[in-house]
Design a protein around this nucleic acid. Structure first.
Length: 575
DNA sequence: GCCGTTTTCGGCCCGACTGTTTTCAGTCG
């Protein structure tokens, strides 16, 4: 997919333009286009062929021509010309908090700063102090910016940030005088990674509440503290913004600070067309505030039904809401079981009995135990003999448990070998209740080979689920390269469900791929891929990702009753 | 550079906070 490549170019051009400061709206247009491409579900090359590039929000006449040019030549001459006017290492510095285009321009002109090393030397040299507008505090702030920047180069996965956020929220709710507190921002939208936390509180004494907040235990450093806003850094480096809001503005503020930015801009345009003005304080006609106490009232006034935060990315959800075709999203409670979990037999850290027991406390109707196949040597994949031992233990456990839930489903996570064959022979596969197939090696095959490999695997009649289809690891491993459309097509045809894996560093499929697969009619399995009993709960991150992919419970096979799932697992048409 | 049921031109969010000023500029969200 070239989406990311083009997005990167547009983002950099946007930064160069804002650095030059000539036309900030042109800069905004490039930045918005970059964000829009990153959130796109379809492939740019395909869209260009179909002539639908201009349907992408933020892409118009000029940018669509540039995308065409990139597809043809791998270059965009106008962008390259713009980029060549400024050293790229200088543009990278804009990521440093507190260092904006104006300051950067000044430092470049006065001190010929071109990269990070130069910037750091300048800070240490003390010559900045002589500059008008620069004092001790400002320089200290820039130093802190560097620290933050180095620490936050990787955003935190949702699965790491959300537990921190939930604990902090509970602490805030206990502060005296807090009437209500909520998470907002990207963590409320359940984005797969989180840059910082946004929180809102209602209180009749906000200054005191904010002061108390900055004294909470996990707070390491206070960056700013005012009457309505406080910004702190937690131990571990996560930044938190808390805003205190009046009760009558709470809905408007919650909407505003939940975003996304593009969703809000779109909403504001709609409001504007109706002669309304919206901001974090409410909906206004002229100077008169209409209402803003609840989020749903806020949306209603603008003429848009309320929608779940996970959808608010300006990816067509506003249009869908107006036309009454919002999806009814899957919820954690809809899941009746988990179809991907490991035990001590392979690389899990809990026993089979412990996993089953914990699955029971989660209210599951069924739990599939899917240890690795032999090719996964490091993970102690099971050969035929150890697989037989495991079957025996499952049988013993089944008879001991009688009719108690959950039902134990005997499965395996079977490696897809480099040519697309599976790592167990057909006679073993045929004995398993469920086969979860996945790639764990040879990640760098050509797109053609990789596509063929996956198609081969899915053509095997015993395969039920394609697990973590892209095999990416957030922050450490790129997704494998294959023709996603063809693979989805084969999944639909062969009745293979695509997994949405809930492990915090996987979240695979991604939101946009899941949505594309849904549009193509695919089925899904939302799984924990738990390697310990406590990790069974990570399945909720898979559900969040699925919700961001517009997925409804009807197309999630582990939201089905056991009776229905069992029929599907048998796949009579294939045998 | 995008966008359009007030517009094909003229908008495009603007309020809070900080720091260095003495009335404001820069940054952020």
């Amino acid at each position: 997919m070239i989406n990311e490549e083009v997005a990167n170019i547009f983002e950099r051009v946007g930064r160069v333009l804002s650095y030059k400061g000539k036309d900030r709206f042109r800069a905004l247009a490039y930045e918005r286009a970059a964000r829009s491409l990153r959130g796109l579900e379809g492939d740019l090359t395909t869209m260009a062929k179909a002539g639908t590039l201009c349907d992408i929000p933020g892409i118009g006449h000029d940018l669509s021509e540039m995308i065409d040019e990139y597809i043809d030549t791998h270059h965009i001459r106008r962008c390259e010309k713009e980029l060549s006017t400024i050293p790229q290492s200088l543009i990278d510095l804009m990521d440093i908090p507190g260092l904006g285009p104006k300051t950067l321009l000044l430092l470049h002109k006065k001190f010929h700063i071109e990269d990070f090393e130069g910037f750091k030397r300048l800070l240490d040299s003390g010559s900045l102090l002589k500059l008008r507008g620069f004092g001790e505090k400002k320089i200290e702030n820039l130093r802190r910016g560097i620290k933050l920047w180095l620490a936050s180069k990787q955003r935190l996965p949702l699965g790491v940030a959300l537990p921190i956020a939930e604990r902090l929220l509970a602490d805030v709710q206990k502060i005296k005088g807090v009437e209500r507190a909520d998470l907002a921002g990207s963590i409320r939208r359940r984005r797969e990674t989180i840059g910082d936390l946004d929180m809102l509180v209602i209180s009749n004494n906000s200054a005191r509440v904010l002061r108390e907040f900055t004294k909470l235990k996990p707070v390491d450093e206070v960056l700013s503290l005012g009457e309505t806003r406080a910004t702190v850094i937690l131990e571990g480096g996560l930044q938190v913004d808390v805003r205190a809001v009046a009760r009558q503005s709470y809905g408007a503020a919650l909407q505003y600070f939940t975003g996304s930015k593009d969703h809000n801009v779109h909403l504001r345009t709609l409001a504007h067309a109706k002669g309304l003005k919206i901001n974090e304080y409410g909906v206004f006609r002229g100077k008169k505030r209409l209402r803003g106490a609840s989020e749903s009232a806020f949306y209603r006034l603008v003429g848009v039904p309320l929608m779940p935060p996970e959808l608010r990315e300006d990816r067509g959800e506003i249009e869908a809401a107006i036309e009454g075709r919002l999806p009814t999203l899957i919820e954690v409670d809809h899941l009746r079981g988990d179809l991907h979990a490991h035990t001590l037999y392979s690389d899990g850290r809990s026993s089979l009995a412990e996993m089953v027991e914990r699955a029971g406390t989660l209210g599951y109707e069924y739990i599939a135990i899917t240890d690795h196949s032999p090719a996964a040597r490091i993970a102690h994949g099971l050969d035929r003999r150890r697989l037989e031992d495991k079957v025996e233990e499952i049988e013993r456990l089944r008879s001991r448990r009688g009719k108690r839930r959950p039902r134990i489903v005997h499965g395996a996570e079977v490696d897809i070998l480099s040519d697309g064959r599976l790592d167990y022979p057909q006679d073993i596969l045929s004995q398993l209740d469920i086969v979860v197939a996945s790639v764990h090696s040879s990640f760098r095959q050509s797109p053609d080979r990789m596509t063929g490999r996956l198609l081969n695997a899915m053509a095997n009649p015993f395969v039920h689920v394609l697990a973590h289809p892209t095999t990416r690891l957030i922050g450490s491993r790129a997704p494998i390269d294959f023709d996603f459309e063809r693979v989805v097509e084969a999944a639909v045809k062969n009745r293979v469900a695509l997994e949405i894996n809930g492990q915090p560093y996987r979240l695979d499929l991604t939101d946009t791929l899941a949505r594309a697969a849904k549009e193509a009619g695919a089925l899904f399995a939302i799984n924990s891929d738990a390697h310990s009993a406590s990790q069974l709960q990570d399945i909720r991150y898979g559900v969040f990702q699925a919700r961001r992919g517009w997925i409804e419970s009807a197309s999630v096979i582990n939201a089905w009753t056991w009776a229905k799932l069992r029929r599907w697992l048998r796949k009579p048409m294939k045998r």
